[in-house]
């Protein structure tokens, strides 16, 4: 944008500065945008495009071993075509992992965003006391590293060391096993909700604060109750933030790794490939098959792109329709 303006100034106003010749100036001006783009492009190419390209390249390779595979020259890297991809598609563990993450996401995303919205609305209402302290308290878990959070919750989930279980036992209440079966999903989701709600709340809250007060005033003059204001005015007006937080949450869900990995040693119910990313890690660093891992990582990246941008498009279309209607 700035470059366009720059070019115009040469043509329209002539030459306020001493230029060698208009032709050179124009050429220089034509080059200028590329020059400005250079640092970003180089960094992008080096640290983004190149590694991704290499990962994709690796995903089409494999190692071929001959005979016993001992000694020099027993292993060769060869082209694999789509073999790693077909294997990944046929691998029931990857599919099951994806389904597990889907189940996990169905719990985490609605609960986390619901709570975030609720807290944001409550903080925004005038009746709340100690708003800054409360805001900080809700946000704080986000500042705790995921692994630490998972470890802490892990201790709380283990019947023999958890204070909660101690109390339940004293009260002769049932003591559910949170690290098994269905409750395990709740246990893992809980860690994510605990850690992520604060961040999403801040995003929504910030956008609530930017709504002009006149809007509320008008609503109040029209006789709207605080609840009506929240439902009819605030929520629709922060819809773009909700879309954004939803978008982030989908991505975070698809990348779930820390929580199940940290909880894994605590229970037999979490296997080494509980989530797709854990499977990638397992293949790359335990099985040492970086080729299969590269193919799986590529698939996960594609799925993330399709899901998250698919959602964004759908959300945008709706907003436009609403705007038009």
């Amino acid at each position: 944008m700035s470059t366009t303006t720059g070019r115009k100034s040469y043509g329209v106003k002539g030459a306020p500065y001493a230029h060698p010749s208009p032709a050179t100036a124009r050429k220089g001006a034509l080059r200028a945008p590329y020059f400005f783009l250079l640092p970003a492009s180089v960094l992008f190419a080096l640290f983004f495009a190149l590694p991704i390209g290499y990962a994709v390249f690796l995903s089409f390779r494999k190692v071929h071993v001959s005979g016993l595979g001992l000694g020099a020259g027993a292993r060769h890297e060869v082209w694999a075509g789509f073999e790693n991809y077909t294997d990944a598609f046929q691998d029931s563990e990857l599919l099951h992992g994806a389904l597990r993450v889907l189940g996990y996401g169905c719990i985490v995303v609605p609960v986390m965003l619901g709570l975030a919205l609720l807290f944001a609305l409550m903080l925004d209402s005038e009746r709340v006391r100690l708003a800054p302290v409360t805001r900080l308290a809700i946000f704080l878990p986000y500042a705790i590293p995921g692994v630490v959070a998972a470890l802490m919750w892990g201790f709380l989930y283990l019947p023999s060391v958890s204070p909660f279980y101690y109390v339940l036992q004293k009260l002769h209440m049932p003591q559910p096993n949170l690290l098994d079966g269905g409750p395990l999903y709740l246990a893992i989701s809980n860690i994510a909700v605990w850690g992520g709600t604060g961040f999403n709340m801040i995003v929504i809250y910030t956008s609530l604060r930017s709504i002009p007060v006149e809007v509320y005033e008008a609503a109040r003059l029209d006789g709207a109750t605080p609840l009506q204001i929240a439902l009819r005015i605030k929520i629709p007006m922060v819809a773009p933030s909700l879309v954004l937080t939803f978008f982030f949450s989908i991505i975070a869900t698809l990348q779930v790794f820390n929580e199940p990995t940290t909880l894994k040693p605590l229970t037999n119910s979490l296997n080494t490939s509980w989530s797709p990313l854990m499977k990638v890690y397992q293949d790359a660093f335990h099985r040492g098959d970086i080729y299969a891992a590269a193919a799986e990582a590529t698939l996960i990246a594609l799925a993330t792109l399709v899901l998250s941008f698919g959602f964004l498009r759908a959300a945008n279309r709706r907003t436009k329709q609403e705007a038009a209607g």
Partner: peptide
């Protein structure tokens, strides 16, 4: 334990 099967190209140096 475990370990891996990363590739190597042939020659020992």
């Amino acid at each position: 334990t475990k370990r891996r099967r990363l590739v190597t190209s042939a020659l020992a140096v």
